[in-house]
Amino acid sequence: MLEIKNLHASVEGQPILKGIDLKVAAGEVHSIMGPNGSGKSTLAQVLAGHDAYEVTQGSITLDGKDLLDMEADERAREGMFMAFQYPVEIPGVSTMEFLKTAYNALREHRGEKEVDALDFLNLVKEKLALVEMDLAFLSRSVNQGFSGGEKKRHEIFQMAVLEPAIAILDETDSGLDIDALRIVSGGINKLRNPKRAMVVITHYQRLLDFVQPDFVHVLVDGRIAKSGGKELALELEDKGYAWLENAAAAAATS
């Protein structure tokens, strides 16, 4: 499904991603861990198509289609979804209007006609239940005044409505209390299916207790320093990142 080859990316001329190779097949859940500043969000933003990040080398394909050729909106319509580490507040645009516009853009892309208002309301109600959010959120401005946890739940709710082929979840678990973590991870699990891939960026094993990954990768200084199964996350919990950082530094200078 998603194939990343030798990806290099920089911001303002500063290289951040320094050669990433990653293959994610349909139905798989991959977790990406790594120290602060190692480039996890950068990878997520590059995948989503943020134009502040310049891809200097490598390729990204989704089901064989070249993502680097597409703007962010086109990628999203092709099935790419990124849950933001810091969701943006949009005063003046209601959550309902925002989501409906997104949903209709998707439908238009698939050659379907605009969704009927009542059908959409029913769909949205069903998906809200998935993350235990209240209908009242829909009339509020997008993310405005939402608590940290509400913003994260809102991201998962959007994923539930838009049903992407692949979802990159950037620290969707950070800032959540125990109940919210259970709700969010429950939502993620319900959205897991054999056709959908997920890349879960996190710092914490506690999320991975709920959402069990098929693979774990550790990003250090813009490269995947180690990959493994879910037991790798437990090892990191135990040992921290230092041993991988040292190894990565040694590899970089050799």
């Binding site: 999203a76 979804f81 943006v88 949009i90 003046g92 209007e97």
Partner: peptide, 19 residues
């Protein structure tokens, strides 16, 4: 904000108009 809209599949022109 434009990027947030685009990341959800909304065409840039629509995003600008809405915002």
């Amino acid at each position: 904000a434009i990027f947030y809209f685009k990341a959800r599949g909304i065409h840039e022109a629509d995003a600008r108009r809405l915002l």
